[in-house]
């Protein structure tokens, strides 16, 4: 039994960054708090806890969501990818690499959310221009103002796909 939770916990199964986990969670625990507090995956950030900043963006079954707006129990059976799960061993995901090369962050706090959001964006396939990237990334705030470089990084990661 978890402290303060009585017996009201639910059993769920989550695949997180490739590993299948069986978890007892309180029904009120958000996916974000589960990741950060229980699983130690603090790469997903909490900037507002209200779905207003995008810092907590993760991929659930390949789709970008604000993990602070999702209760963990709602995601029973889902596959979750966080910033910690994007690189393959030492090889960074092309977006991670593009973010470094374009200096697409300063403090780095919004960065995991920006990158996960960008992975989702590319998968959606709707963004074709810089203006579309701007529009479709507008749920991810960056108070350091790295926006121009984030757009450049996403554009760079998109390019090979365009050429293909």
């Amino acid at each position: 039994m978890l402290p303060g939770m009585g017996d009201d916990t639910c059993a769920i199964t989550l695949k997180v960054n490739g590993s299948t986990l069986r978890l007892q969670v309180a029904p009120w625990t958000t996916l974000l708090d589960l990741l950060r507090e229980r699983l130690g995956l603090t790469g997903s950030k909490k900037g507002c806890d209200h779905g207003q900043c995008g810092a907590c963006t993760v991929l659930v079954d390949g789709v970008r969501i604000n993990s602070c707006l999702s209760l963990a129990v709602m995601r029973d059976g889902a596959s979750v990818t966080t910033i910690e799960g994007l690189a393959e061993g030492d090889a960074l995901h092309p977006l991670q690499q593009a973010f470094i090369e374009n200096d697409a962050f300063q403090c780095g706090y919004c960065t995991p959310g920006q990158i996960c959001s960008a992975v989702g964006l590319l998968a959606e396939g709707h963004a074709r221009s810089d203006d579309q990237i701007r529009e479709l990334m507008s749920g991810n705030l960056c108070r350091c103002g790295a926006y121009p470089n984030i757009v450049a990084a996403i554009g760079q990661a998109m390019r090979p796909r365009r050429d293909a």
Binding site: G40, L41, S44, I83, L92, F99, D103, P112
Partner: peptide, 21 residues
């Protein structure tokens, strides 16, 4: 130069005050 802490920041390894335990 690219940031030397870039890798830590894009992989979620950079730890902020509320993330130590």
């Amino acid at each position: 130069h690219d940031r030397v802490d870039g890798r830590a920041k894009v992989t979620g390894q950079a730890r902020y005050a509320g993330e130590f335990t």
